[in-house]
Computed example of a mutant assay.
Amino acid sequence: MGIANKNCAMYMDLKDIIREHTLPFLPAKSLFRFKGVCRDWKLQISTPFFVHNQSNSFHGFSGFFCQSCSKPPSFISLDPNSYGVPDPSLQFLPEPVDIKTSSHGLLCCQGRTVDKAYYICNPATKQWKKLPKPSADHGSKPALVLVFEPSLLNFVADYKLVCAFSSADFDDACEFEIYSSKEGCWRISGDLFFGAAMLRPNSGVHVNGIVYWLSMNGGVILFDLGMERSQRLFGLISCLGVMNGKLISTNFYNQTLHVSVLSNAYTNTMGINSGVRTWDTILTVKMDNLPEDSGLGPPNDRQPVHFSSGDITLLQQGRKLYTYDRKTKEFGCLSDKADYDATIFGYVNSLVEI
C-alpha cells in the first residue's frame, strides 16, 4: 500500500511538482532562463509536448509591440523581468518589416520591399514562415486580422489571416481574402460589403469566428468566417478588443474611461422603437486620481485608446503611454518615449510552434 501511495502526486518532490504543474503557465522569457536551473528542466522545457502545453496554458498579455512609420519594431514589456523577446526589432526576418496584426503569441508582418510579402512569426522563438502571394491587391494599408486560437488538438499553429480590401470592380465596396495555414493558400470570399468606405488598418479583432474592423466613416464592419457574410454595426468607438470571450469597445473622454460590450449585433434589423441596444456599458472609470504630470489633456479632450483587451487598456498622450488594469484598478505610466505615430499590438509571450 505504501509503495502505491508513493506514485501519487502528493508524494512527488517539490521540484517535480513545479516542473510538471507550474512551468507550463510561465512566459517564454522566464522559461528560457529556467533552462539553466538543471538538466531535467532544460529537457522538459525543450520537448514539443511542453511547448504545446505552454502555448495552451499561458494566455496573459505580456507587453506591446510598437510600430512607427520610419523605425523598426520595438517592444515594451509589462514586466521586463518576466516577459520579453530576444530580438524586438525582428531582424531575424529576411527583410525589414512592419507589424500588421498579432494573436496569441504570433505576429503577422509585411515586408517593406516591392514584393510586400506577408510573414507569420513567433518573436520569442524566432520561427517564421513566408506566406504565398495573395490573389488580390490588398493596397498600401491592408486591414488584416490574424486569427489564431491555441488548441490542444493541434501541435502546430493552425491559423487564418483575413484581409479586408477595397474592391477593384465595385466602387465603395469591400472584399475579403482569407489565407488558411491548413490549406496553405489564399481564397477570395464571394461576399462583398457595399458602403464600407475604408477600414481602419490595425483596428481589427477576432471573437468567436467573427472578425471586426473599425470603419473610417464610423461604426464597425464584421465578417463572419463561418457564413462568410458581412454587416455593419453602429457606435462611436475608439478601440475594439476582447474581454471574457466577447467583443468590447473602449473610449476615453471627459477624463473617463468607457468600456462597452456587444450585446446585440442585429439591432439594424429590428424596429426603430424596439429598445434593443447594440452596446451595453459595463465599465465607467473616472480618472480623477491621475498623476499631476499625466498630461492627459483638458477635460473634454478625447484621448486615443491604442489597446483594450483582457484586463488591460492602453492610452497615449503625447509620447507617454498609460495603462489601466481593470482587475487591480491601477493606473500608471508604461513609457514616456513612445513615438507620436506609434501603432500598438498586444503580445502574449508564448512558445507556440509555427
Rank of each mutant, 00 (worst) to 15 (best):
T284V: 14
D169W: 08
G241A: 04
P134F: 12
V156F: 05
T256M: 08
G275C: 09
Y340I: 00
A338I: 12
F50E: 04
G139P: 00
I3C: 14
V145I: 11
K246H: 07
H206E: 09
F65V: 00
C163L: 06
N56F: 06
F223R: 10
P80K: 10
M216V: 10
E20N: 09
S215H: 12
M1I: 15
F32R: 14
N81H: 09
I354F: 07
A197S: 10
V85L: 01
M198D: 12
D79Q: 03
F194D: 13
S309G: 10
K320I: 00
Q316G: 00
D311C: 05
P150M: 02
D98R: 05
K71T: 11
H258L: 15
F194H: 15
N53Q: 07
M216W: 06
L23T: 02
D137S: 02
F345K: 06
Y322G: 12
K133A: 15
V211I: 11
P80W: 11
R277G: 05
D301M: 09
N53P: 04
V156M: 06
F193W: 09
L144W: 06
N81Y: 09
K129I: 12
Y347K: 15
F92V: 12
K100A: 15
V51K: 04
L321W: 00
L107R: 02
V97N: 03
S62C: 05
V205S: 02
L236E: 12
L131Q: 02
Q67G: 03
V51L: 01
G84T: 05
P96F: 12
I17P: 13
M227N: 14
Q231E: 13
S68G: 01
